[in-house]
Write a protein that binds this DNA or RNA. Structure first.
Lengths: 190, 190
DNA sequence: ACCTGAACACCGTTCAAGT
DNA sequence: ACCTGAACACCGTTCAAGT
C-alpha cells in the first residue's frame, strides 16, 4: 500500500486535532501511518514543509469573497479566523508556517488583501504591507483567543471577569481599527 | 560558585545572540554554565519561564515615553522594534513569550498602549484590544523583517527588487494605519 | 538550599541497503 | 521509485542522592 502526500497530511491533521501541535512529531506521525520515520522524507523535504501542507489544508475553506473592499476584507478575515478555530492549535500552526513562508494559501490571501487595499486607495508600494498588517492582526488575535479557549476547556473554568463582550464582537472591533485606518489613509491621500 | 538567575539569563542571551533561538536549549545552556541540566530547574520551573526572563532582558531598553498619545504609541513601538532587532531571533523569542504570557515587560507595554488608546478616545472595553493590536503589528512586522535580514546576511545577497523604500519607513506606514484607525474610531464616537 | 548523575521518554534527519 | 533499519546527535524534565 503506497504512501501518498494526501494520506500523510490527513494523518497529520488528525494528530493535530486530537492531541495538539506539541504531539505532531515526524516520529509519531510515522508510527500512526505504520511506516518508518525515514519514509516521510521521501514525500516531504523536512518537517517545515509538512507543516506547511497541513496549514494549507486548514486554510482550504477560506474562499474568495465578492463585494466592495470592506466586505472582502472583513469576509476573508472572518473565514480565516473560523478556519483557524476549527483545528486544535490552528492559529499557532498557521502562524508558524506563514512566518516560515511555507503556506501558499497564506500568500494567496495576502495577495487578495493587497488588491483590496489598492482598491481602497492605498499606494501600490504600501498595499502589500497593508494586507500583511491585517493578517498579523487576525493571526495574533486568534492565537490569543484560541489559547484562552483551550485553556478554559481544559478544566480551568474561571468565568471571565469584566467584559460580557463576546469574542466575535471584539474581533470585529480590532479589524475595524485597521479598516478605518486604511480608509482614513486613502482619504488623506498617501 | 553559586548559580544565580542573572548568570543564567546572561548566558542564555549570549547563546541567543551568537547561535540563534534553535541552539538555545536547556542542555546547551547548562553546558555553557558548566552545570548539570537539572541545576537550571532549581532556578526556573521550565524552559518557557526561562525564555520569558530572556524576553524581559531584551525588552529592558524599552522605556516610558512622554507626549500626546500618538507620540507615545509611535515612540514605544519604535523602541520595541529596535530592541527586537538588537538580538538574533529577538522578535521570534519575544513573540513566543508574549503568546505564552511569560513576559512581564510585554504586559506592561500593552497596559501603556491601553492607556494611550483610552486617551485617544477608545472606549474602555476596547482599549486593551487596541493596545494588543498594535503589539500584534510590531511583532509580526519585525519578525518578518528580521527573518529577511538574517537570511540576507547569511550569504544569499539578492539585492532587493522593486521598493527602494527602507524598512523604517515601511514600519512607520503600517503603524500609521493603526494610529489613523484609532483616531478615526474616536472621532466616529465608538 | 542547591546541585549532580543518571535515567526516562522522547526528538529531526540521514543514508546505505533492500524490493 | 519507494521504503526499512539503524544510526547520529541531540532534546526537556524528573528525582534520588549527595554536600
Amino acid at each position: 500500500m503506497q504512501l501518498h502526500k494526501r494520506d500523510v497530511v490527513d494523518a497529520a491533521t488528525a494528530l493535530l486535532d486530537n492531541y495538539g501541535i506539541a504531539d505532531l512529531s515526524m516520529r509519531r506521525l510515522a508510527r500512526e501511518l505504520a511506516v518508518s520515520p525515514g519514509a516521510l522524507y521521501w514525500h516531504f523535504a523536512n518537517k517545515q514543509e509538512l507543516l506547511g501542507a497541513v496549514a494549507d489544508r486548514i486554510l482550504a475553506p477560506v474562499t474568495d469573497v465578492t463585494g466592495d473592499w470592506r466586505v472582502r476584507v472583513t469576509g476573508m478575515c472572518g473565514q480565516l479566523r473560523d478556519a483557524l478555530l476549527s483545528h486544535t492549535d490552528g492559529a499557532e500552526l498557521v502562524s508558524a508556517s506563514f512566518a516560515a513562508g511555507q503556506s501558499e494559501e497564506m500568500s494567496r490571501l495576502v495577495e487578495r488583501l493587497r488588491e483590496a487595499a489598492t482598491e481602497a486607495g492605498v499606494a501600490p508600494e504600501h498595499a502589500e504591507l497593508a494586507g500583511r498588517t491585517v493578517v498579523y492582526y487576525v493571526l495574533g488575535f486568534t492565537a490569543d483567543e484560541q489559547s484562552r479557549l483551550q485553556w478554559d476547556a481544559a478544566g480551568a473554568r474561571v468565568a471571565q471577569p469584566v467584559w460580557t463582550d463576546d469574542a466575535g464582537a471584539r474581533f470585529a472591533f480590532g479589524l475595524g481599527l485597521l479598516v478605518d485606518g486604511i480608509a482614513a489613509h486613502s482619504r488623506t491621500g498617501a
